[in-house]
């Protein structure tokens, strides 16, 4: 019989404490708020699942969730194929490798609110480089503070600019790990370029792409700063994504109960989608 030693649990304790204070305690506070009603003065009344019912029935929530899903869907179907395509086009060896890698990494190094501010100025119709060029040189009427479509195009392009690099770098890491023999064997087997991509490169990139999609899903689903700085959720509510709506509810209107219920639903949606996606993608792996 092997003696069971429980002392190892002590090593987990610091992490447990850390997680408790930065995740579990705040989360439980939110849970606490989500089932109560307050009128100020630190007076709370039990409200059951009322807030959850309200939020789930609220058209405002549905609209924000819809916008959020649309945003995430659009950036994923643009960034993932684009990122893979760029990674495929990047050189595998030689002088240009570090140059490409640094260029690709640059957008990732810029703080989120700076990205929002940059794009805000960039797209101003009278002085911004893009805004001026579109309006004055090309004659296209473009003003993202007036047109919801222009606002949407701008936030999508901004996100693509900011985050495609992440997909590129991960996909590239997957690509360069493929031994030359695979390409040589494929050549000898008479495989077309498409077959090489389909049967060698894509399967070898599957793991890193799973991670890339997961990261991009979570980040874009929770996006706040860039869009808030750029459009403030407007014009009207057209770019009010879930997180922006949540902050408006919680801090603008100080509706703690509904905001807490909304946070939890938001959190569960993110968790559920991530879990389902990851489980499906890795189900074949031994």
């Amino acid at each position: 019989m092997k003696t069971v030693n429980q002392r190892a649990w002590f090593f987990v304790l610091p992490v447990l404490l850390l997680v408790a204070f930065n995740a579990l305690v705040p989360l439980m506070t939110v849970v606490n708020y989500s089932v109560q009603e307050t009128f100020g003065d630190n007076l709370f009344f039990w409200h059951g699942v009322g807030w959850f019912e309200d939020v789930l029935r609220s058209e405002r929530f549905h609209a924000a969730l819809g916008r959020q899903l649309l945003f995430t869907f659009l950036i994923l179907i643009i960034e993932v194929p684009l990122g893979v395509a760029i990674a495929l086009a990047m050189p595998r060896k030689g002088f240009w490798v570090p140059v490409c890698l640094v260029l690709m990494a640059l957008p990732l190094l810029i703080p989120w609110n700076v990205v929002g501010a940059m794009w805000n100025i960039f797209t101003l119709p009278d002085i911004g480089l893009a805004g001026y060029t579109l309006n004055e040189v090309l004659g296209i009427n473009y003003n993202m503070t007036q047109s919801p479509l222009a606002a949407w195009i701008t936030i999508i392009v901004m996100d693509v600019w900011h985050w495609t690099s992440l997909v590129v770098l991960l996909a590239y890491a997957g690509l360069i790990s493929i031994p030359d023999a695979y390409y040589q064997a494929a050549k000898i087997d008479g495989a077309s370029n498409w077959s090489v991509f389909r049967y060698i490169q894509l399967p070898k990139m599957k793991r890193v792409l799973t991670i890339a999609i997961l990261l991009r899903f979570m980040d874009s689903f929770n996006i706040y700063t860039e869009v808030f700085v750029l459009t403030g959720g407007g014009p009207g509510n057209s770019t009010t994504l879930l997180s922006i709506d949540l902050v408006k509810t919680a801090l603008g209107q100080f509706d703690l109960g509904p905001a807490a219920a909304m946070s939890l639903i938001y959190f569960l949606v993110t968790l559920l989608v991530s879990w389902v996606f990851y489980t499906v993608m890795t189900k074949d792996e031994p």
């Binding site: 031994p179 023999a181 695979y182 040589q184 064997a185 050549k187 000898i188 087997d189 008479g190 049967y199 060698i200 399967p203 070898k204």
Partner: peptide, 21 residues
Amino acid sequence: LPPDQRNIAQVFQFPVIYDTM
């Protein structure tokens, strides 16, 4: 001529298999 036009076959030192097939 490239390998596919020479009608040859080659087996490499380490196994090359198409994982998904």
